[in-house]
C-alpha cells in the first residue's frame, strides 16, 4: 500500500466536526419546525456554531497538506 498517513489523520479529524455539524443543524431544524418565527434568532446562533465546528475540519485539511 502506498499513500500518506496525513490523509488518514485528516479523515480522523473530520469525525468530530461532522458529528458536531449534524447535531447543530438537527437542533436548528427542530427549533425552526417547532417555532417558525424564531428562525431569525436561531439562524445566527446555528451558523456561528457551524463556523466554529467547521474551522476544526479545515484546520485538519490544511495541516494534512502542510505538515510533512
Amino acid at each position: 500500500m502506498t499513500g500518506t498517513l496525513a490523509i488518514v489523520g485528516f479523515g480522523l479529524s473530520t469525525i468530530g466536526p461532522g458529528t458536531a455539524t449534524g447535531l447543530i443543524f438537527a437542533a436548528y431544524i427542530s427549533g425552526v419546525a417547532r417555532q417558525p418565527e424564531a428562525r431569525s434568532i436561531l439562524q445566527p446562533i446555528a451558523f456561528l456554531g457551524f463556523a466554529l465546528a467547521e474551522a476544526l475540519a479545515l484546520f485538519g485539511l490544511v495541516l494534512a497538506f502542510v505538515l510533512k
Partner: peptide, 16 residues
C-alpha cells in the same frame, strides 16, 4: 438578517 440557509452555509464555508 435571516438570509437563505443554503447561501449562508456555503458562504461561511467559503469564508473559512
Amino acid at each position: 438578517m435571516a438570509m437563505n440557509d443554503d447561501a449562508a452555509f456555503w458562504s461561511i464555508l467559503a469564508y473559512l
